[in-house]
Amino acid sequence: MLLACLSVVLIVGTWQASASYRWVDPIFLPGPLEVLGALKGIVTDPGFASDLSVSANEFFWGLGLSVLVGGTLGILSGWYGAVDEFLRPVVTALNSIPHLALIPLLVLLFGIGVLPKVLLVLLSCIVVMLMNTAAGVRSVDTQLLRMAKSFGASDRQIVCAVVLPSVVPFFMTGLRICVGKAVVAVAMSELFGSTAGIGNILIKAQSAMDMSRMYAAVVLLTVIGIALTQLAAALEAAMQQWKA
C-alpha cells in the first residue's frame, strides 16, 4: 500500500516538476493543480449531471445486457455440448476482433446516440461473460453432482444447489474484467462521435484546445474506471469468502 502510494506521488511530482520547470510546454501538458482546477470545473458544471448519466446509462445497459445474455448463454453452452458447438464460431470471431475497430461501423449503422455505445460495450463484454460462465459450469465437481443425486435431488435442485453456486466465482471474475472493458468501450465510442457523455467532454475540450479540461476528463475517466473495478473486486471477494 505504501509503495503504491509512493509510485503515485512520484508520478504526480514529476508531472508538477515538468510544469514548473517547463520540461514540456504547459500548453500541451498543464500542471496537476491546473488540471485539478479544471476537474472541479467539469464536476460543478450544470451540464455534468446529464453527461454523467448518459455515460452511466451506456455503461449499465451494455454491461447489464452482457451479464444477462452472456451469462445465460454461458450456462447453456457449459451444460450442453451442442450449444457450445453452435456458438463457438461466433465466440471465437468476437474474441479475435479488436472491438474498438468496430466503432466506425457502429456509428455508420446506428448513428451517434446511445445505442452504438451500448452495442460496443456488449461486443466487448459478452464473450468474456460467456466464456467465464461456461468454464464455471464445466468445472462443476462431478463428485458433488453424484452426491446430490444420491440424496435424491431433482435436476432443478441440482442446478440451484450445486451448479449455480459453483459458477459464482467464475461469473464474478468475468464481471470484474468486464467492468474495466465497459468503461473503456463507453469512453472510446464517445470519442468517435457523440452528443453527450464524459468522453464527449474530453473530445470537446480537445477541439477547443482547452488542455486542462481535456486532461481533467482523462483523470475523471481513470478515477471512475478504478473505482468501479475496485467495487467489482470487493463484490467478487465478498461472494466467495468460503474459498479462504
Binding site: L144, P165, Q240, W242
Partner: peptide
C-alpha cells in the same frame, strides 16, 4: 439410503 462418500463431498460454499 444415504451414502457417506470417500471424499467428503461437502459443498464448499455452505
Amino acid at each position: 439410503r444415504a451414502v457417506v462418500f470417500q471424499d467428503s463431498c461437502l459443498l464448499p460454499w455452505r
